[in-house]
Design a protein around this nucleic acid. Structure first.
Lengths: 208, 208
DNA sequence: TAGATTGTTAATCGATTAACAATC
DNA sequence: TAGATTGTTAATCGATTAACAATC
């Protein structure tokens, strides 16, 4: 019913609607969103109908109302607190990433094994791993980012799981599997690079 | 014929084969790769047949030979040089990312507008934007990473395109479109987070 | 040889698109 | 009202899976 591609499209519709709103649009048609995101108008309406997002025949969709509904589906109607395990190059970059400031995504703490990285004064705390279960519990954290080297990934995953984390965005270069306790979203940077390289080499338009 | 998902699967087969090789496997069956990557054995064989990767009836696939062929498709048979535009948190993290050391991916230079970031002594140079076209030309660079804020993305894209770049991995939070000159692979971190959040909230297994 | 696995064809499944009645 | 756009159904398309002949 709702596969990953469909949710990715909803994010794009949301971003397109946001941009059109900033251009003072008050309403959009499925055709506008289709143009802006590179899909068909049928697809837009189909996606909306699956999430029971409805508009006005002849009048399109009110942008504000549409954004409210898309944000709700995408969990942007409330602050989503993340912790991050592994404060290396990538971990630190995500903690400081400016792209999240307007969004409802916040990384509230990082965890690492290296005492040199601990920091209890920064806005996002950097704490030792053994404080993770307590922090997760008292702050009611459900979401985590895993940004450790391959060798540490499985062990950290186990710790996150037993701490009660419900969803993990995994940047470690090893594919973790979702189970009914934890949803995993694997994001392997090398794989993304390889994908680009393939399409450049063959010069065929990627269909996604 | 070869969509993005298929290439992603090839990367996974490659990674699985690499892991099995490190366990001293000499050959693998489609069934092994299927188990390791979570797809069906039919899918593995179908994917291979599309890329004319063949094995031995009854004998499976020789790992070394398989890796050679997969690496070739994925462009890992030669060093892939990237430049990066935008040396902020994310840009710097990618330059220093340890996950690429064993792979044939290398970021050879970064470009930025901020003089405080310039560095002609580091292994990966950080140079001013106006040296980009010359650098690309003399070093025969075809691939780039775009890691600038949204407002700068379009302008930087234009510069990369006119410098002759053939493929861009775009981390800027705006969707760029491929054309017949440049292949674009958009990677929007906020979108990836939203995807995870959706599946955690609905607790349905993502199908990708 | 008998048994096991590939490579490929045909069947199935699911996602996208087209079409159009409903309706504002 | 006439015209335009949604919402939904039916048709199409493409990707995945099952099945099995080929063959090592």
């Amino acid at each position: 019913m709702s596969n990953r591609s469909r949710i990715l499209r909803l994010s794009r519709y949301k971003n397109a609607a946001l941009r059109l709103k900033s251009l003072n649009f008050l309403k959009v048609f499925s055709d506008n969103l289709a143009d802006a995101t590179g899909v068909t108008a049928s697809q837009v309406r189909k996606d909306f109908s699956i999430f029971e997002i409805s508009g006005n025949r002849r009048g399109g969709y009110q942008i504000d109302e549409l954004l409210t509904q898309l944000n709700k589906v995408l969990g942007k109607d409330k602050l989503q607190k993340f912790i991050i395990v592994g404060v290396g190059n990538l971990g630190r970059a995500l903690i400081n990433y400016q792209g999240f400031v307007k969004s409802e995504i916040k990384i509230v703490a990082g965890f690492d094994t290296d005492p040199a990285k601990f920091n209890r004064k920064a806005e996002a705390l950097i704490l030792p791993m053994d404080e993770l279960p307590g922090f997760v519990k008292t702050n009611e954290i459900e979401l985590a980012i895993l940004a450790v080297p391959e060798f540490a990934a499985q062990e950290c995953y186990d710790k996150l799981k037993s701490a009660g984390i419900k969803g993990i965005l995994n940047f470690a270069p090893i594919r973790l599997k979702s189970d009914d306790k934890v949803v995993i979203h694997n994001l392997n940077l090398e794989t993304e690079f390889e994908n680009l390289i393939y399409f450049v080499n063959t010069k065929t338009e990627p269909t996604d």
